[in-house]
Amino acid sequence: MTTSIEKWGDVHVEAGTSRNVFLDVGETYSGITVRIPVHVRRGDEDGPVIFVTAAVHGDEVNGTGAIRQLIRDPDLDLSRGAVIFVPVVNPLAFDRHSRYMPDRRDLNRCFPGRRSGSLASRLAHTIFSEIVHRSDAGIDLHTAAVRRTNYPTVRGDLSVDGVRELAEAFGTEVILDKQGPDGSFRREACNVGCPTISLEAGEVWKVEPAITTLASRGVLRVLEHFDMLDTPAKRPSAPRRPPIPVTSDDTTWVRADAGGFLSFHIRPGDVVREGQALATSTTLLGDEVEEEGDVLSPTDGIVIGMSTLPAAHPGTPICHIAKLPPGITADLIERRRARHGELQEQIRTELAANIRVEEDT
């Protein structure tokens, strides 16, 4: 990349130090300058520069919680390289508890942006110039959209040099091999030579303990993989990896065929089999909707996303399933989880806390 990690306007970040810097990214309606807080931490020696960002969508704050946890960790000492922590990329949306910019644009469709473009495009241009162009790799933290929750899944274009290495080092149980939409942060960063992955995990407007733990540990595993952390005596303990990584390039959204009130039979992260009942649609008086009542899984897979809203009309997305790749079976995943899946079980339990799950009858 072309921009120095040391100089940020009038602020200099020397090797072996950490500094907070503030990027001017726009103005409010009243003309007050809007700034993004950034924490830059450098090791004593040169090495990779990795950015970790959150709240590109202003209501997705699980990643904000994880980054704050990492910044506040007194034992996170870098031996080489640098990390750029950006807890909130989109302050204009964050202040409104909104996914979108005040101009109603989705910032995650506006990269790399333009200096003289729309409000969202100008913010995207600043982020790209000041963060991506200083970095060798990136991790962008997201959650599900409103009224949904996501089981932790890393997404990345595995055909791009460095992305598979980054995704596998992060260590989620599920990796989706996806390019990403035009204008999305990770896709456009990859296009300029900065391999970038995104994590999708949890719900909007929340800082969920198991999700922030998983996200912060994933970042630490990446830093460890690139030999950026200090001596083992000082290094934060990185947990063992998930019991079995599942890499999928094929997902499907299962939708309701009838209107009604849903009784869910699965949790986020559950392994499902073809023909398994995912939910049952009932009337408001509790009677099962005839013929189209049961919503069935079309494939073997892992539930990576779910609606948290039980009221459905025809076409409502109920759950997002990552299909299992060749050689990976539902039985194999369940056996491995039974032996080594403690954190995954904690995550599935916490994510289902706001969903009533009933036994399939």
Rank of each mutant, 00 (worst) to 15 (best):
Tyr151Pro: 03
Ala352His: 11
Ile244Met: 15
Val61Ser: 08
Thr2Val: 13
Ser159Cys: 02
Gly9Tyr: 00
Val49Arg: 10
Arg115Leu: 10
Glu345Ser: 10
Gly63Gln: 11
Asp161Pro: 13
Gln69Asn: 11
Arg109Met: 13
Ile302Tyr: 03
Thr231Ala: 12
Val88Gln: 07
Ile32Tyr: 14
Arg148Asp: 09
Phe94Trp: 14
Ala311Glu: 10
Ile302Ala: 01
Val219Trp: 01
Thr64Ile: 11
Val38His: 05
Leu309Ala: 07
Thr28Ile: 04
Ile84Val: 13
Ile71Arg: 11
Pro268Leu: 06
Gly202Cys: 10
Arg240Thr: 09
Gly113Trp: 03
Val295Arg: 02
Pro243Asn: 02
Arg35Tyr: 05
Pro74Lys: 12
Glu342Met: 07
Pro326Lys: 01
Pro232Asn: 10
His320Cys: 06
Thr17Ile: 05
Ile244Phe: 08
Gly315Thr: 04
Gly315Ile: 05
Arg155Glu: 04
Glu358Lys: 10
Thr280Ile: 03
Ile347Trp: 02
Lys234Arg: 13
Leu141Asn: 09
Leu107Ala: 09
Thr299Tyr: 10
Val49Cys: 14
Glu208Arg: 14
Pro325Glu: 00
Pro209Arg: 06
Pro48Glu: 11
Arg96Phe: 04
Ser98His: 14
Thr282Trp: 05
Ser281Trp: 01
Gly286Met: 05
Glu130Arg: 12
Glu345Asp: 15
Cys194Ser: 02
Val49Gln: 08
Thr231Glu: 12
Gly286Glu: 09
Pro152Ala: 07
Val61Tyr: 10
Asn62Gly: 14
Pro48Val: 02
Glu168Lys: 01
Gly301Ile: 02
Thr17Met: 10
Glu168Tyr: 04
Gln276Val: 03
Gly341Asn: 11
Asp270Ala: 09
Ala54Trp: 08
Ile67Lys: 06
Arg104Tyr: 15
Asp287Thr: 04
Arg105Lys: 14
Trp8Tyr: 13
Asp77Ala: 12
Thr149Tyr: 00
Ile321Val: 15
Phe261Met: 15
Leu119Asp: 02
Thr126Lys: 07
Val272Phe: 00
Leu78Tyr: 04
Tyr100Trp: 12
Arg41Thr: 01
Gly202Glu: 05
Thr143Phe: 07
Arg42Gly: 04
Thr212His: 01
Asn20Arg: 15
Thr143Glu: 04
Gly293Ile: 01
Val289Gly: 00
Glu292Gly: 01
Cys110Thr: 06
Asp10Lys: 15
Val38Ser: 03
Val52Phe: 04
Ile32Val: 10
Ile32Thr: 09
Phe111Ala: 12
Arg68Asp: 08
Gln276Asn: 08
Leu70Pro: 03
Thr126Val: 15
Phe22Lys: 11
Ser159Pro: 01
Cys110Ala: 15
Trp8Asp: 05
Arg335His: 10
Gly47Thr: 03
Leu78Lys: 01
Thr349His: 13
